[in-house]
């Protein structure tokens, strides 16, 4: 898959191609493409004069980065204790059925990526699911699939 290399250059230039902005640049690329394609990393390494082994170290260290394609929408389902006892597993199962992907996977159309998280810190809202940073609290399993209909 190819990507717009001029856009990558623009992101790098927005940060004045400074080595100290490496993580911020990677985050911006990740935010735009939902993952970090190899060409983008090669370009960043070249423009910032940062060795690839450091970039690999950083991108594999932080969970915010992905080197495999991710969907346009990120679904996070909380599996923490409070959500668990309130039926998080059933919410996850419904979402899995609706999107036809399991936790940790991305669908073939690159529409959704599904992840589980261990606690979102808002246990009173449980069970909680987050889609693209938007929190949906007290979701009944039946509602979970409806929430996803709002995303294209």
């Amino acid at each position: 898959m190819c990507m717009d290399i001029t856009r990558i250059d623009q992101i790098i230039d927005d940060h004045n191609a400074e080595q100290s902005s490496l993580i911020q640049i990677l985050l911006d690329i990740q935010a735009e493409h939902h993952w970090l394609p190899k060409q983008a990393l090669d370009r960043v390494a070249e423009k910032l004069d940062v060795p690839m082994n450091r970039i690999q170290h950083i991108t594999t260290f932080y969970k915010a980065f992905s080197q495999v394609p991710k969907g346009r929408h990120q679904i996070h389902v909380c599996m923490g204790t409070a959500c668990h006892v309130r039926g998080a597993q059933r919410v996850l199962d419904t979402i899995s059925d609706a999107t036809r992907i399991k936790a940790g996977e991305t669908d073939a159309e690159l529409k959704f990526s599904l992840e589980t998280v261990n606690c979102l810190g808002c246990c009173a809202l449980g069970p909680v699911m987050v889609v693209d940073g938007e929190y949906h609290g007290n979701v009944a399993p039946a509602q979970a699939a409806d929430v996803l209909k709002n995303y294209e």
Partner: peptide
């Protein structure tokens, strides 16, 4: 990792992942 970075300055090998899953890995291109 350090020898390659500091002495040879080739940066051909680095760390991947973190915590208990951390391991060394060569960068294929380099």
């Amino acid at each position: 990792v350090r020898y390659c970075n500091e002495v040879k300055k080739k940066n051909a090998i680095g760390y991947i992942d973190r915590g208990p899953r951390r391991e060394i890995s060569f960068i294929p291109d380099v």
